[in-house]
Amino acid sequence: MNSNKKISFGWQILVLTLLVTGYVFLGGCGKKTQKTQKVYRVGILCGLDYIGSIPDIFKLEMAELGYIEGENIVYDVHRTNFEPVKEKQILQRFVEDKVDLIFTFPTEVSMAAKAATQGTDIPVMFAIANIEGTGLVKSVRDTGGNITGVRYPGPDLAIKRFEVMRELAPEAKVMWVPFQRGYPIVSSQMEVLHPAAEAVGVTLIEFPADNAAEVQAELNARDKLDDIGFDVILFIPEPLSCTDDAFEVIARFAYEHKIPVGGITMQVGDYKSLFGIDVDDPKTVKQAAKLAEKILKGTPASTIPVISSESYFEINYRAAQELGVEVSRGLLSRADKIIR
C-alpha cells in the first residue's frame, strides 16, 4: 500500500520547505489578522429560571477558552421563564442582529430558536434540551440543520427518576406526575413512563398545570378527599416543578401527607425533595462552550454531533428521614451526592 511507504527524505525536506515558506509568508498575515481579530456576538436565551445561572457559567467557560467578554466576544443575554411570545421576539432580534451564534436552553426556546433561524446561516447551539420527540435534531450524529448542542436525556431521566422513586417507595402503586401544561418534552417522557409503570403495576396520574395556583387548587381539592389518590409525587424533567412556588405547594402537601416527593433536587424553605436525577449543569455548559468554540471557529454546526449530558444523582438523606423514607445502601452507594 502506497500510504504505508515511508515518505522519502527529499519529500520531507520539500514538505518542510513548503511549510516554512507558508509559515514565513502566512505568519505575517496571521499577525495582521490577530490585530483585526473579529469580535463575536453571541445571543443567549435562557428559557427557565431554574437554570438561570447557566449564562454566567458559560461566559466563564468561554473565557477559559480565550473568549473574553468585551474583547473578542460580546453576549446578548436574555432570560425568560416559559414565555413563548417574548422568547420569539428575542430570537427574532438575534436573527436581525445577525449574531454569530444563538445559544439557547432548555428545550422549548431551542426549538423556537431553530424555527427562528430557518433560512438563515445563523448557527444554533442548545443545551439541556430534549431531542427525543421534539424534532430539534434528526439524530445525534446527523443534526439535520445548522444546529447542535448538548442533549438532555429527558426520557431516560424520567424513567430513572421513576425507578429510583420505586426503590425509595416500593409499595407505591399510584404516582402523581405534575407538569407544565403544553411543555413539549413531556409527552415523550410520558410515552416511555407509562409502559414502564404499567410493567411494574404502577399507575401514573398526569397533572398538567399552568402555574402553582392551579396545582394548589388541585391539591386542595385532593386534600379534602378521604384518599388523595396517589402514593408518591414524581417530578419529571419539565419546568413547572422547578419553580419555587409550585414546588413549595407540592412539597408542603407531600410533607403534610408524609408521602415521598422527588425527581429533581429542590428545596424551598423547609421543604425538600427526596432525590434528584438531572444533568450536571457545569459539565454540560463546559461541553457547550467547547461546541461554541468550534462553531465560532467556522465548523458548521450541522457537522458537529450532539453531545449527551451525563446524569447526576443526588439523594437528600435528611429529607428521607423527615418523610420517613428508608433509603437502601445500594441507592446511597450509587448516588453522586448525598445531602445529609
Partner: peptide, 9 residues
C-alpha cells in the same frame, strides 16, 4: 445487574 441508566436504555 445494576445500571446507571434506566431500564429504557
Amino acid at each position: 445487574k445494576v445500571s446507571r441508566l434506566s431500564s429504557l436504555v
